[in-house]
Design a protein around this nucleic acid. Structure first.
Lengths: 338, 338
DNA sequence: CTGAAAGCGCTTACAG
DNA sequence: CTGAAAGCGCTTACAG
């Protein structure tokens, strides 16, 4: 037995299919309608177990309580400690709270325009990933398809929910400066992304503020921590991305050099280390809240409450500082010894 | 400028809209068609930058390429070590491979018929969970809606992909018997489910085969391990469910009794302990493969390749034995000492 | 108050 | 070979 259509309900209730549509749609246009008729239609729908076809609904109007989730990696990460997993949890909870179902767009090999187009069966779509091919997304944006990026974007008119890395990163450097550090290195991965640019900007802002010249080192190789210490460096700040490459590199180098943290060297991470070690000084990215906020924004975009270029469509959530124990006052003895 | 549609291409190429559809669809039905016409249409489409509307395509072609995933818990578990997480990974990968998108039905309310009915927006649906309210699912089954349970079901005509707990559990007991154990206890949780029944059956089958009377103990309280050992029990087999209640209870009891495993007592788990400790004797449930197989089966059901009551619609996947080190020969000294 | 009609952008028979 | 038509299941004007 095929699933029931509105026409089936209409037949059963003795009304027209259009009337069924009006009733089931909650009579948004405020048509006058006999209560009896309304109840009769509702009862028939219940009896038949009616469920609207999302595709037809979407074609005829533009609303099916379906939100897309497009990830540029697997949605269910094999590595469950994956950095965007908590975001997904927030997304799911908020979607559930707002009565929206989620469509996972996965299996995308080339993330080209044709691939991204599939998202249009949803009312709007969330995009995940450090790198999102802007040109592939452009057609969607141009057509006014509601979408929200997780993570800040440079492109104007593109809504996003990100983390305020500038402020959080600056705070980390200010703390080091406050402890007396003057020779600080910032190690970041060569990979370019808005979130990386923001962290670097925060570091440089705080350095300039203190009249310091923090050396920014880009590398995907081993970190020359030992040499830095010999040169008088007392603190190292490390970028944290979803691969943790830079942080892991520094941690290894520190171990191999036999350095004691924070005695010989203060170490801070711009984010949280992969094992979420609270002993490491850094900050927490509000991933869960980002997920929730992104869904709320997307729904507001879909319903037209918010427009893509309004300020509300560009949100940066504050990060929570993690004091840790990997940062201390600079070891003057060390410094003089070099 | 609005997006071009097939009718725009048709106008430009001087053909009908239907012809455009045929050409762009790759002429699946193998209609005869002038190559010149084909090229003209293609050129026009290219010139206008045509992009098919996925919603209209799906409506017209009568299938959504949408597979439902209905979980009776959160889809993105807060506890990422959750036992069905690997299944989800398999589901996602196979869905991706088959070009199917996934709709997550969440919202965790009462799982009644009305709630489950929402799944019908998908072409078919996967159901997760130890307990699935059979009566709520019945209407879907009756309507011929394609669905697949994860885990064996008793209800005839309901497709499932589960694990072969009978065989795997029997193998565990046979191994103990082979090592010389004669006094064996089986501890299981009181909770009833097909997967629990299968494990118990495997245990009892192997026991009968060996002419032994394995005592089956149902409890959700502390396990009286110490007393068992005093009574001459040399091996304990424990059920493993998604809560791990029984296993954790036994482990605690063994520790408190100061027993040494496997010296004083052999310990085997019918599954894998929560921390996936390979030192514990048991077996691995092929969760990842179950996820993949379930999606394949669901797609076959949707396309009609397989019918719900055929043997192929009821699959039990083999579990992989985990030898472990928690099982050894019975300690005769202990036995005599009591 | 309710029905008939048009149309969303496609696919798929079915006539020529 | 190609066009005209019907129809996928809905929503939204527009007549009564």
């Amino acid at each position: 037995m095929p699933r029931p259509r509105q026409s089936d309900i209409a037949k059963l209730a003795g009304v027209s299919q259009a009337t069924v549509s009006v009733v089931l749609g909650g009579n948004r246009s405020g048509l006058r309608m006999a209560e009896r008729t309304r109840l009769r239609v509702l009862a028939a729908a219940e009896q038949l177990g009616y469920v609207p076809d999302p595709v037809a609904t979407r074609l005829a109007s533009r609303h099916n309580s379906l939100l897309g989730v497009y990830t540029f990696k697997r949605t269910f990460p094999t590595n469950v400690a994956d950095s965007y997993y908590p975001i997904l949890v927030g997304v799911e909870e908020e979607a559930a709270a707002l009565g929206q179902d989620l469509v996972l767009f996965t299996g995308a090999r080339d993330h080209d325009a044709a691939e991204l187009r599939r998202t249009r069966i949803a009312d709007g779509c969330l995009f995940f990933g450090r790198h999102v091919p802007a040109d592939a997304v452009a057609p969607l944006v141009a057509d006014g398809f509601p979408l929200v990026y997780i993570g800040r974007r440079d492109e104007p008119g593109i809504p996003y929910v990100g983390a305020d890395y500038v402020t959080a990163s600056a705070a980390v450097v200010r703390r080091l400066v406050g402890l007396g550090h003057r020779e600080i290195r910032y190690l970041r991965e060569p990979d370019e992304a808005p979130s990386s640019a923001d962290r670097e900007r925060g570091v440089l802002d705080a350095a300039r503020e203190a009249g310091l010249d923090v050396g920014v080192v880009r590398t995907d190789g081993p970190a020359p921590v030992r040499r830095w210490v010999e040169q008088g460096v007392t603190a190292v700040v490390v970028e944290e991305t979803d691969t943790s490459a830079a942080y892991l590199s520094v941690r290894r180098a520190v171990e191999q050099a036999g350095l004691s943290v924070p005695h010989d060297l203060s170490l801070a991470v711009l984010g949280q280390p992969p094992d979420e070690d609270p002993a490491v000084t850094g900050f927490q990215v509000p991933r869960y809240e980002m997920g929730r906020a992104a869904v709320r924004l997307l729904v507001d975009l879909v319903t037209g409450v918010v427009t893509p270029d309004s300020p509300q469509a560009h949100r940066l959530l504050p990060c929570t500082p993690v004091p840790g124990r990997s940062v201390g006052a600079p070891n003057t003895a060390n410094r003089q010894g070099t």
